[in-house]
């Protein structure tokens, strides 16, 4: 079953397309990293998936065919939006009660246990807490709903490195224990590389790359060789990006099986290098490549 499916999804704001022509399918149980520059359309895609906004064209469904924003979808999808919005005037305990009353399923005990572990007292006012604590409370609220899909928009932006680790640890524990599917967005891949098994790369409102991390890595290779022959290589192999040095060039190629020509040799490919290669070529649409990977 696909936890997320989109078909030709697009959203236009005042004549500008924030997201266009996005077709995706993500199987249940995935942990998806949604990566792209600021303004690439990450939040737009997440807002569409959670039903907060409606599409200009195309369609999005979650939880195996429930239209995004429908009551069944809202019931099973928890969203921690950018900057983790909370009611600043309430205490943590009051926030739990308010959000609990807005949901059909609510695990109060789980929320209280988690907050106790974090050392956040229930009588603390939300506005008195640090950004990191607020993000933790927002995550606690989302997990207490026992969702099937957890959507986190830039969840780590407000956290210091140690808090990032704790935060991701909570997310991953929940994902493995409850079979939760997770989508996390970030403009920094390094935050997510450790945990994700799926990658969606957006650039300028277009889908660049989407797929299982292992498939994507298998579908790409990095070749190094003389700079003078880099142009020649591009005519033989599907080159994504060339990093030219003084005399050597590193070339990201979107074909995992092609034999390197004479004078070129394979290097180890990291997910980060692959993502950076695409991020540096924002105009490159790789939908054909994606289909090759899918097949």
């Amino acid at each position: 079953m696909n936890i997320i499916e989109t078909q030709g999804l697009g959203k236009r704001y005042r004549g500008t397309w924030a997201l266009r022509d996005c077709t995706l399918a993500v199987p249940e149980g995935s942990v998806v990293a949604l990566v792209g520059h600021n303004g690439a359309g990450k939040s737009t895609l997440l807002n569409l998936l959670t039903g907060l906004i409606g599409p200009t064209e195309g369609a999005a469904s979650v939880l195996g065919g429930e239209p995004a924003g429908s009551s069944a979808a809202l019931d099973g999808v928890a969203y921690v939006a950018q900057e983790a919005p909370l009611y600043q005037g309430l205490t943590v305990g009051e926030t739990l009660r308010v959000i609990g009353c807005l949901n059909r399923r609510w695990d109060q005990q789980r929320a209280e246990v988690r907050l106790a572990e974090l050392g956040i007292p229930l009588n603390r006012r939300v506005r008195k807490m640090s950004g990191g604590q607020q993000a933790q409370v927002a995550l606690t609220l989302a997990l207490a709903r026992r969702p099937r899909l957890l959507v986190l928009d830039e969840p780590l932006a407000m956290l210091d490195p140690l808090a990032r680790f704790d935060f991701m640890d909570t997310v991953m524990t929940a994902a493995s224990r409850d079979g939760l599917s997770v989508v996390l967005s970030s403009h920094v891949l390094a935050d997510l590389e450790r945990v994700c098994d799926h990658l969606i790369l957006l650039s300028q409102g277009r889908l660049q790359v989407a797929g299982k991390v292992t498939d994507l890595l298998a579908g790409h290779q990095v070749l190094s060789g003389p700079v003078s022959e880099a142009t020649g290589l591009a005519s033989q192999l599907p080159v994504v990006h060339v990093t030219a040095g003084a005399d050597q060039a590193r070339t990201l190629v979107s074909s995992g099986t092609a034999e390197p020509p004479d004078g070129w040799r394979r290097e180890t490919l990291s997910l980060e290098e692959m993502v950076l290669g695409y991020l540096r070529e924002p105009g490159l649409s790789v939908r054909s490549q994606e289909q090759e990977v899918t097949a």
């Binding site: 807002n47 959670t50 039903g51 907060l52 009551s71 809202l74 019931d75 999808v77 928890a78 969203y79 939006a81 950018q82 900057e83 919005p85 909370l86 009611y87 600043q88 959000i99 807005l102 949901n103 059909r104 399923r105 927002a138 609220l141 709903r145």
Partner: peptide, 13 residues
């Protein structure tokens, strides 16, 4: 305040 992104994405709709 942006809290609509919290309140409108809860199960109640």
């Amino acid at each position: 305040t942006g809290t609509f992104r919290l309140s409108w994405t809860q199960g109640a709709g």
